[in-house]
Design a protein around this nucleic acid. Sequence first.
DNA 1: CAAATGTACTGAATGGTGTTCAGTTTTTGA
DNA 2: TCAAAAACTGAACACCATTCAGTACATTTG
Lengths: 203, 203
Amino acid sequence: MGISERKEREKTEMKELIRAAALKMFLEDGYAKTSIRKIADAIEYSPGTIYLYYKDKDELLYEVQGLAYGKLLDAFKAEANSDDPLKRLIQMGKTYVSFGLENPELYDLMFIIRAPTNVDEESHKDNGDKTFQYLLDCLEECINKKLLRITDLQLGALQIWSMVHGLVSLNLRCRLKVMAIEQQELKVILSHAIENYIASVTL
Amino acid sequence: MGISERKEREKTEMKELIRAAALKMFLEDGYAKTSIRKIADAIEYSPGTIYLYYKDKDELLYEVQGLAYGKLLDAFKAEANSDDPLKRLIQMGKTYVSFGLENPELYDLMFIIRAPTNVDEESHKDNGDKTFQYLLDCLEECINKKLLRITDLQLGALQIWSMVHGLVSLNLRCRLKVMAIEQQELKVILSHAIENYIASVTL
DNA sequence: CAAATGTACTGAATGGTGTTCAGTTTTTGA
DNA sequence: TCAAAAACTGAACACCATTCAGTACATTTG
């Protein structure tokens, strides 16, 4: 029966249409400033229709988060691919920070926005896992080859991620005003911060 | 002329009444979920009245941010006061993280919430400066006494702050799900992360 | 003291938000 | 062709920050 297959296809096409519009608007204006009404306007459907395909605005957020984690993983694969795991680790740090500063609204909904409480647990977290795994693999290789002062994989990953997330999020939220950093120096200083940190944990 | 003085006093009392109600509700329910209407209800005035004392909700945020930075500074003075600057630095890190985890809504409005664009620049940032200075002083002493691998005060402060902010904010935003950390282990792991980090930059 | 001025406050109105659901339109299958 | 099912609509609900004409009270002036 071909009809139910077409129905299925149309359903996923509609979901895709909504997701694409949402992604575009989230990127341009941010999650908070993008309303369901505006998305509906953009795709020329009524607001109610969106709720036939997504339970609520949060579900749309998860959908886009998945895409975003994938984008970050792609960036890692493209820019952090040195054979030397130590170099790769530094590349990852710089890629992460650049990604955050160049895609502020995306970074926001990936890591800063309040994660809704009605978490579906098992769904949507696949891409995030894969991206995190890329860090774990790199770090594990560094540890195995005894290149770092770090011995615990979990603890090391937590430290590295916290450092780069801290750098990006304090910047995006303008909390470094207190340090009076010139905007043009910013990327240089952040680069130094990452290199400096990795250097200090290198044996 | 005593009347204008009384007027003045009444005005500051009213501002204080509003600020106190706002602080209480921000702490309990968070900034986003606290509406001007609810604050007005709590102090038994109409919503419009609040706008006679504060330009908008953002100004109320700045007011409470100032208080919060003061609270953090107090915590530093109480818990991070060792004569050994290195010990003091570790104490500061732990105090910062505890403060964040124990006062999630407060931490949120201090460091995570989107800082409104219409920043008044010169006002309200005093308390933040003082608190940051406490870190700078400690770190400078460490550098002067050649206790650390860190040589640049700015860069070092940026690194340390980013690390602890990263730890706290990833936790508050539930982004460490991917690491599957048990809730009871959390504080221990965070403690280790801080000690580990400071140890790795210690000469 | 009475009238005029000034100040404090109100609360309805404006234009937004996410979400729901009765009702309409379109598509399907017999 | 026609009833049932599916898709879609848009007004309605309960919120939100903010504004402002109008009211009530306090103070100053004649």
